[in-house]
Amino acid sequence: MSRDLPLIEAIREALIEEMEQDEKVFLVGQDLRGTIFPHTSGLVDRFGTERVIDTPISESGMYGTAMGAAHAGYRPVVDFMFGGFTYVTYSEVAVSTGQQYFLHGSQTPMPLVITAAVGAGGRLANDHAMAIHGSFLHQPGIKVAMPSTPYDAKGLFKAAIRDNNPVVIPWHMGLMMDKGPVPEADYIVPLGVADVKREGNDVTVLANSLQLKNALAVAEKLKDEISVEVIDPRTFEPFDMPTLLKSLEKTNRLVIVDEDWENGGFASTISARVMEQGFDLLDAPVTRVTFPNIPVPGGYMEPYIMPNPQKIEAAIRSVCA
């Protein structure tokens, strides 16, 4: 059985189901009990203050609590409220959790989930709108995923909670109330498996989260002219390279859309990998639609930097020209 649920409700269901299944799972963050976003609504009534923990505004302390608890066999979900706040304790998330498993001889797994709301579009400016997936993708030892549909949201969150590694899994505020089918039965979306969201023959567009919606809209608009295949990576690390290469065997053209800065992000990483592993498949240079290297502005200037359907269409036309 499946119902239509908003993405944020799908996340809430994932949390509830995993907390019910495994008493080692708990939430730690700020104002989770009163709720800032609806995915934690009512959870304290269900699981008590021991498992829905509000901390002072001490991101390092909050995150460190999760890290220490993970050492001791718990499976914390750390909610940073806004993704930008992960940068407050970036060194812990990136360096301590990401690298210590390896550095300490692969003895102590660090099963924890890092989540937060991200995304431009709300006129909130940099600190409340920055992307985080690219920054964590850069760091070894961390898995990174981001859902674009309610189905994927529930399945990815459940997979992340069951994974024995730190998993950074932000969700986009622009998708919060987007509805889609979500099964009631237990399921996961495995980390590291991309999803072909629309089949096509002429060009592949790799787009995630909110931009997947834009890419699908453009594909629909161009359908009588250009046949666009749209792939959702779902997980940035590990990334499903075989699915992308298989698509390029057919389309020979690639546009990557990523709501993140151009420098050193997911789009650049995948461009380089395609160059290394799929150069002979390409009939045109890989083209990226990303943020120019400008801080995410507030006011009315967000559209200057945001990828949008017009920019995606222009990129598709340029590689198909």
Binding site: Y63, G64, T65, M67, A69, H71, A72, S91, S96
Partner: peptide, 28 residues
């Protein structure tokens, strides 16, 4: 790192053990 003795991490960043210690204390 000696997990069998509940010694889980060493950090070359001074002061980085205080916050996991909160987690160990919470778990204890």
């Amino acid at each position: 790192s000696y997990p069998a003795f509940n010694q889980f991490m060493y950090s070359g960043f001074i002061g980085y053990n205080f916050t996991p210690a909160t987690g160990w204390g919470w778990a204890a």
